[in-house]
Nucleic acid binder design. Sequence first.
RNA 1: GGGGGUGUAGCUCAGUUUGGUUAGAGCAUCGGCUUGUCACGCCGGAGGUCGCGGGUUCGAGUCCCGUCGCUCUCGCCA
Length: 583
Amino acid sequence: MTKNQYRSNYCSELNNLVGQKVKLAGWVRTKRDHGSMIFVDLKDKTGVAQCIIDVSEDNFKNIENISLESVISVDGLVLQRPENAFNDKVVSGRVEVKIESIEVLNSSDCLPFAMHQNDVGEELRLKYRFLDLRRDEMQSRLHLRHEVIKLIRHLMESMDFIEVQTPILTSSSPEGARDYVVPSRLNPGKFYALPQAPQQFKQLLMVSGLHRYYQIAPCFRDEDSRADRTAGAFYQLDLEMSFTTQEEVFEVLEYVMFNVFSKFKPEAKIERTFVRIPYEEAILKYGSDKPDLRVDLRYYDVTDLFSENCPKIFEKIMKNGGKVLLLPVKDLHSKSRKFFDDMQKLVQDNGAIGLGYILLDTEVRGPLAKVVSEEVINFIKERGDGAFFIADDISNITKYAPHLIKAVGKEFDLIDEHAYKFCWIVDFPMYEKVEGKWQFSHNPFSMPQGGMEALVTQDPGSIKAFQYDLVCNGIELTSGAIRNHKLEIMYKAFEIVGYSSEDVEKEFGSMINAFKYGAPPHGGAAPGIDRLVMLLAGTENIREIIPFPLSQNGQDLMMNAPTCISSKHLNELGLTVNIDKNK
RNA sequence: GGGGGUGUAGCUCAGUUUGGUUAGAGCAUCGGCUUGUCACGCCGGAGGUCGCGGGUUCGAGUCCCGUCGCUCUCGCCA
């Protein structure tokens, strides 16, 4: 502890200083006025110290008017409290400071909300974020975020990764999310884009001969926000390795996640290595490529059991290549009609046509009882005493199947709320068909499994990529890939989605050019830092662990961003604003 | 861009279903009392453009239309 003009000690280190003079500085958290004597709880970074003002002494006239959250510095004597006044809820609760002199360093206006209040509306909290962050709960979130990032840096450096800063002003790229753009004064009419991720830069660093790169990198995507997706900027642990394999990337991230969760969630006892689930299997078992493995339920693909004796209602779906999935549930027959109606409504609200179910108790009951075969009944019997059926296109099933599995899991108490269940989703399809045209289903720079031969000989829909996600509790924490570092394979891969080599060179010129000069095989991933901290903090929305988040509409309610700029400013940039101001 | 929720005192909310006296409560604030409290306590006062604009009505916090903020969500997020 270095003494300075403001303090000699912190509030939580007074227990062994009885009889000594100290100087403390901090915020007036609460005041308790007993007439001739006032208790002041002084709060600093370490905690709270109770200070006493004896108002009968002349030098404290009017001091009872000192407002809450004012910043003060006090000189005083540390005293043992009377035994009946111990407060063991506070570290320094057995001592107190008798104030001898007090200096108001900055007084506070009347507060917009009380510091102990934890039901303040988010709008007000964002407007007064500096006060909101002063609350204990938010302080601990700031500290958690710092500790997580500090540990990550340590872990990455222990594995020979070096941190490199990449540009914030870069060029717009055609694929992906909407860009945030910044007008260029020196190049009127032209715009920078803020990077959606340092994707191309980190690949270029691999070409530069960097062995292992990482960065706590800001990423900017101009898309609508969600509870787990903030507007504006978010942060990734961006990493890339040369001469690497998918397995090696997994090892690195399993090491990071294991250490981070072991430190901050030791009671969760997470696995040292994570289960791998091929994309197709995840979709059929959980209806999702980000399954929440805490829920002890799964679907079964029973399409084949319906190939003969197909009930009429499933006929059309199956003819068009749809699937029939079965969700067996124990004790399902005990549920009321209302529960089934609720589930029906849930899936329909999320795009399902309907929801079938069968109950097996003394007899076979339910809307599908009459139409399914003995074989199906037996299949259910082995796994429960009832089951839900969904029959639909796979692309549609993924919209509601995860909701159903979660709701049923909740109803039957089959969710281990305190667990952290990780899995790798692997073998993502390279392409998907959208409105009759092939598109990259993920990152266009991923290496197709099977390389050039696969691109030339296989149906695009059957080609898998070295593309993987790391999922925890139904949240996509990481996306990554082994990259395509061979130009001829790149051109071919783009050709399938309708890009000529000229198009590719035009859109991704810098990377294409670099790949002509000795690009090593490389790959990496990018875990979302905010989502990781959110998981560790257990908050309902991601803004709780972001110091200064934007609102859902992308506004900073404290700084009043974004704002209009002056016409002089616009002229300098060669811009005219073309919106109806009256609107 | 679509759908849902929400907006009343500085804060958290009641009142809106069924239009009708001066729009209430708790906390905070202000004044008074108070020497062992610790989110101290007791007494009293002040505090309102019911988000904003328009309409219906003798009369609107309440009904209708429009609009804005916040939020959840679908689309979107290679």
